Simulated assay, not measured.
Amino acid sequence: MNADLSEDDRSVTGPGENRPTAGDEDWARRVRAGLLRDDVPQVLADAVLEQARAACRDSGRPATEVFGAPSEYVRQRPQESLDPELRARYDRDGVPEGFDASAVVLRLGVVGLAISIGTTAREGWTAEHGYAHAALLAAVLATFLLGGEALRRRGAGRLRSSRSAWVGSAAVAVAGLGAAWALRDDPARVDVPMSAPLLACVAIVAAGVLLRRRRPAAGTAGVPDDTTPDEWFTRLEHLLRGRHLMAPARTRWEVDEARAFWRAGGTEHPQVEFGTPQAYAVVLTDGDDAPRRRRAAWRAAAATLFGVLALTNLARSLIDGETGGWWRTVVALLLCGAAVASWVRLARARAPRP
């Protein structure tokens, strides 16, 4: 293997007598990019390519002959050929089970940076703020943090704690709005140099990226040893609904079928019959594109909503002759571009498998 090639750019054919070729390197890059676009976690995309390298080494043929064009290979969902126990270690965002400090830090930094950039574009490098602004800012940050944590917990199949986080997010939002309204007439004002929050948020984002790179590898997924059969099936149901976005009616049917099969088999515990609920949920959803399409549709709808709001805000500012139209234009273009990209991904998700 060429020592100058990075791990991501190595040929699919791998080391040894099968030397890397430009075609194989390009094939591997395009497959990896396609898998990541389809929300396949990076660690699983790397495992798919490692599997492809082994197949090419064994056959002695280039990747295009073994697997076909990169786009066609990605549409075949090759990640489903990986060991279910490996895929069960990660939620639908590719995050290992458990609390993820890097996600919280990154969420805080990104939201704070967006607010700081918007404030700087609107008011300049020095902004005048009072207690009402501080209360509203704290509420926005806390709401985004709790809302993001609610989404992450649902993605991990933790439906009860996800609901609790949503309730907390709503409570913080209402409390922040109430405090801002109560303090709206307070005359106290402070001139805030915007360079300080901008630099602080950049540092927070950098810390989040560093924490993510140092995040430990996922361990084996499972449930505690004292988990009862009812708790095992409840965990399976929550994983199917939260992590795999299975429709509620089908989820109930799958869980009832698994429960009936376990009772008929006579084993002492469903984990003996099916393995971990995380791995069995992966098995039950293999080959089903409906959850992936549903998630793409939700993203497209949300991106479209934000794009429409940005365009409405831009139009209102132009009609009223307000200053700062350039940054509103930039925001509208970015959000509309994101909406278009989300609809392209939805069309790709709805395309039939080859």
Rank of each mutant, 00 (worst) to 15 (best):
D320V: 08
L113C: 13
Q76R: 15
A264F: 00
W326I: 13
A132E: 02
V330D: 04
A200C: 04
R294K: 12
D93G: 09
H238Q: 11
L36I: 09
R235P: 00
A341D: 07
R152M: 06
E237L: 00
G147N: 08
C56E: 06
V43E: 07
D191M: 10
A54H: 15
G94W: 08
D9K: 13
Q42F: 03
V111D: 02
Q51A: 08
D4H: 14
A134R: 05
A165V: 03
R189P: 04
E268Y: 12
D9G: 07
L5E: 14
R153W: 03
G34C: 01
W181R: 12
V223A: 12
F261H: 15
V283T: 15
S164E: 09
L311V: 14
A22G: 14
A200V: 10
M246R: 15
H129M: 04
T220E: 08
T276Q: 05
L318A: 14
V283W: 05
R53P: 00
S59A: 15
G168E: 02
P96L: 00
S71P: 03
R299H: 11
E72L: 05
R235D: 01
A28P: 00
S11N: 09
L318Q: 15
D230E: 12
D288W: 10
T323C: 00
A132I: 09
R87F: 10
A127C: 02
S317C: 02
W181S: 09
Q51H: 11
E257P: 01
R158E: 10
L183F: 11
D26G: 07
A247D: 12
R89P: 07
A249R: 15
V48K: 06
L240Y: 10
A54E: 15
R259M: 04
N18E: 00
G16M: 06
A217Y: 08
R263K: 10
R316T: 14
T276H: 05
L177H: 10
W262T: 07
F274V: 06
R158P: 00
E149H: 13
L318S: 13
R235G: 03
P354L: 04
R243S: 04
G155P: 00
W232E: 03
L284H: 11
L108A: 12
L305V: 14
A218G: 11
V140T: 13
A347C: 05
A63R: 07
V105F: 06
D91G: 09
W253E: 13
D191Y: 12
S342T: 14
P41K: 00
V282T: 12
T228S: 15
